[in-house]
Nucleic acid binder design. Structure first.
Lengths: 187, 187
DNA sequence: CCTGCTACTTGACAAAAATCAAAAAATGAT
DNA sequence: ATCATTTTTTGATTTTTGTCAAGTAGCAGG
């Protein structure tokens, strides 16, 4: 069973027919660094499970790029603002490394929700999981100073800091590159 | 049909048996201003639909109270950090006015998800809806200056600004009361 | 109508972080 | 390895917002 299917089964043990349906919506591929998976202004009908590699989700503020989210091994990335609304997304998704991705055609999933109750359940739990992540991130930004945010990230995602350019980390933490550099210099 | 049931039916038209189940989990009551619906440190097993009135969800940062969310007519409030995890919540929910609330026992809902596919669907859509709201709020805070945030709120929730004390609004916008007062003085 | 409380405003100053500019270090392609 | 490019660091200065303190306005209860 694929890594992605295993990931899903940990949330909801899937029966045979749901499992087959999901597989029909998924394709696994190796994709090159710097590929833009999704571009702002487009409508997003896919989400990606990262088996290997690393991505960032970013948007433009004035002329700067602001990182909204990272994806690392075992995470799902998408442009949720578009996926769930069919509006145009403000996000871009870019691969930061050559990556092994499982691409899920969300249209297929969405059409099947009513016929596959376990899929509906899986959907609910995935959204819930991501809601809690977003809530955490929200608290992180409101609760903590720039320096505390850096330290939190250091504890929660040490993987990220090795692999991802400082400027991307900085905007994820909602500080400028310079400020983050100075914070880091203290340690 | 109750206002709350109508609200749910707009998301997912419910069949008779699901409707009956939901009603068995809900009770409608008039609750007095200043009542604390949920206290930090407790585990939250309920959520509330506001038919009439107004609530705030807040937490403590050092010794200050920070407003994380408001609830107005037609909105749902809860301590989601606890509801979905069964961990202790950091949030308090307080009524700012005498309010008519529909209280939902989440345990009953949760136990029924597997037997009631439409309920599962409803759950998914409710979480999705709230995820998008949180995403919006996140963008509001990261994208915009204190002043822009005030103006956005003014446009999005003019209702709120009439009824809710400035200090609560301020912490919701992630600024101090003084700063908000100064911003407001400009108009 | 006065009293006491709470909510809000205003002012002076301090702190955190942003901005602008330039240097240093790291990385990648040849 | 060398050079060019990109990323990161450092310094000086400004902006934004926070903090502390004091005052004013509005309101509820006697």
């Amino acid at each position: 069973m694929s890594v992605f299917l295993e990931f899903l089964n940990q949330l909801v043990p899937l029966d045979e027919r749901t499992s087959i349906l999901v597989q029909s919506a998924v394709s696994k591929r190796l994709i090159k660094k710097k590929t833009i998976l999704q571009r702002e202004g487009s409508v997003c009908r896919k989400f990606y499970f990262i088996e290997k590699g690393c991505a960032r989700v970013y948007y433009h503020k004035d002329d700067k790029e602001i990182t909204g989210w990272f994806g690392l091994e075992g995470m799902i990335v998408s442009c949720i603002d578009s996926l769930f609304t069919a509006d145009k997304t403000i996000y871009n998704i870019e691969l930061l490394e050559d990556s092994v991705l499982h691409t899920v055609q969300y249209d297929i999933i969405e059409q099947s929700f009513l016929d596959y109750p376990l899929l509906e359940r899986l959907g609910r739990l995935l959204v819930t999981q991501n809601y809690l992540l977003l809530d955490q991130r929200m608290k992180m930004i409101i609760f903590h100073s720039a320096e505390e945010r850096y330290q939190l990230l250091l504890r929660q995602e040490p993987r990220a800091l090795q692999r991802i350019p400082l400027s991307y980390i900085a905007s994820y933490l909602n500080v400028t590159q310079e400020t983050l550099s100075r914070i880091r210099a203290k340690y």
